[in-house]
Structures are given as structure tokens and as C-alpha cells.
């Protein structure tokens, strides 16, 4: 029996129905809100575990909703956006959203995103994880205090930038980090050249993490948006 409480913020009735039906079928508990005001009210009164937030709301900008919620709550927020709101997506992630779904999305995709977020919640009550000095994700282990990373017990030979990237991703495991966020954190600025460099370092880091092609995927690419480290079993 799944007891995760999910708040669905969506003004379009059929899509809302689709989501409620899906959630019901998979034993989630859910609440609905059709606009931004109601969403903020629901978050404050019912304290849901996950929020599914449509960016195009009738009364206010979805990004405003994220900012308001973020003033007091760290509840994971998954944005649902239409394809044309590509740049809004990045803006929303930078504003504090955790993940995104693009319309039209498949039911499997929605469930997968929910599972990822749940796993993150379960694994570690986020804050505690980042506070502790050792991060473990599948076969990957990062020892922050020693400044070392291990894969299957073997130490990984990482360049300083790669190590910094790995730390940033692992401290935000499960969260989609935008290019701007990453470059800001690594280099302190976000120029075009930085994003290009980021791709190179990400490729080399990934090669070291995912040495054989059948091994688990740790880092997920979100084209046009950013990267995310997946929480693996």
C-alpha cells in the first residue's frame, strides 16, 4: 500500500482526470488544485509529499507558485509544461523545482518520475544526506571529507572539475540541475564557453562512472535543460 500524498495542480480537467486516474490506479493518495492560489493553500494546509505543478495556470505564473512554496517548504515539485514553454522550464528549475514533465507525457513517464522522487525521499530525507560526509548511490561512493570517489570499491581518478561536478550532482541527487546552475556552482559564472566545457567534463565523468555499457546509468542528460544524477537501487 502506497501512502505518498501527491498534490496535482492542473487547470485542464481532462489532464487532471488522467493524472488522478493514474494515481488512483497505482495506490497514491492525491489532492487537486485548479489554480495557483488553491495550490499554495493546499501545500500549506495538507503538506503533500510531492507536488505536480502545471506551469500554465489561469491565475498566476507557475514560477511564482514555486517561489512562494519555496519560501517555507522543501517539498519536491515536478513541473508539467507544454513544449513551447522550454525556457520557462529552465527558469522553473532554477527557481527551485526538482524535475519536469513535458506535455504530452505518457503515463509510464509520470509514474517513473514519481518513483524517482519517492526513492529520493525515502533514501534520505535529502538534508541529512547532504550533511553526512559519505554519499552512497548504488556502486558509487563519494567520501566528501576525504575528497575521494569510489566505484565498486575502486577509487576513481577524477580531475578536480570532475570531482566538483560529481559532488554537485550527488548532493542534489534526483534533482534536475540546469546548465546555468551547474556552471554557476563550478566556475562562478555562466558563459557560453562554460556550458561547452561542462559538456566535455560531463562526458569524461560519465565515461569513468559508466565504464561498461551495460552498467547502470548514473547521470541523465536533459537536452536543452541540464543534468541529473539518478538514485539507483
Amino acid at each position: 500500500m502506497n501512502k505518498t500524498l501527491i498534490l496535482i495542480v492542473e487547470d485542464d480537467r481532462p489532464v487532471q482526470n488522467l493524472m488522478t486516474t493514474t494515481l488512483k490506479a497505482h495506490d497514491y493518495r492525491y489532492l487537486t488544485a485548479a489554480n495557483g492560489e488553491a495550490a499554495i493553500l493546499e501545500v500549506s494546509s495538507h503538506n503533500p509529499d510531492i507536488v505536480l505543478l502545471d506551469l500554465g495556470l489561469p491565475d498566476m505564473d507557475g514560477i511564482e507558485v514555486i517561489k512562494k512554496i519555496r519560501t517555507w517548504s522543501n517539498v519536491p515539485i515536478i513541473i508539467i509544461s507544454a513544449r513551447s514553454e522550454d525556457s520557462d522550464k529552465v527558469e522553473a528549475l532554477d527557481a527551485g523545482a526538482d524535475d519536469y514533465l513535458t506535455k504530452p507525457f505518457s503515463v509510464e513517464e509520470l509514474l517513473a518520475r514519481l518513483r524517482v522522487t519517492e526513492r529520493r525521499l525515502a533514501a534520505g530525507q535529502g538534508e541529512q544526506q547532504t550533511a553526512s560526509s559519505v554519499f552512497v548511490n548504488g556502486k558509487l561512493r563519494v567520501d566528501y571529507s576525504a575528497g575521494c570517489a569510489y566505484l565498486e570499491g575502486e577509487e576513481l581518478h577524477l580531475t578536480p572539475i570532475e570531482y566538483k561536478l560529481l559532488c554537485l550532482l550527488s548532493k542534489n541527487v534526483g534533482k534536475v540541475l540546469t546548465h546555468t546552475f551547474i556552471t554557476q556552482n563550478i566556475w562562478g559564472h555562466s558563459w557560453e564557453n562554460d556550458v561547452a566545457s561542462l559538456r566535455v567534463f560531463m562526458a569524461t565523468l560519465r565515461k569513468k562512472l559508466e565504464q561498461n555499457s551495460d552498467s547502470v546509468q548514473y547521470i541523465q542528460t536533459h537536452v536543452g535543460v541540464g543534468y541529473r544524477m539518478l538514485k539507483v537501487e
Partner: peptide, 12 residues
């Protein structure tokens, strides 16, 4: 136009 990794694009 942005600098993108070709592998990432194809995987996506």
C-alpha cells in the same frame, strides 16, 4: 545554436 554533445542528442 549551442555547443552540444552529439552523443547526448542522439541518446535523447
Amino acid at each position: 545554436m549551442q555547443v552540444e554533445s552529439l552523443d547526448e542528442i542522439i541518446t535523447e
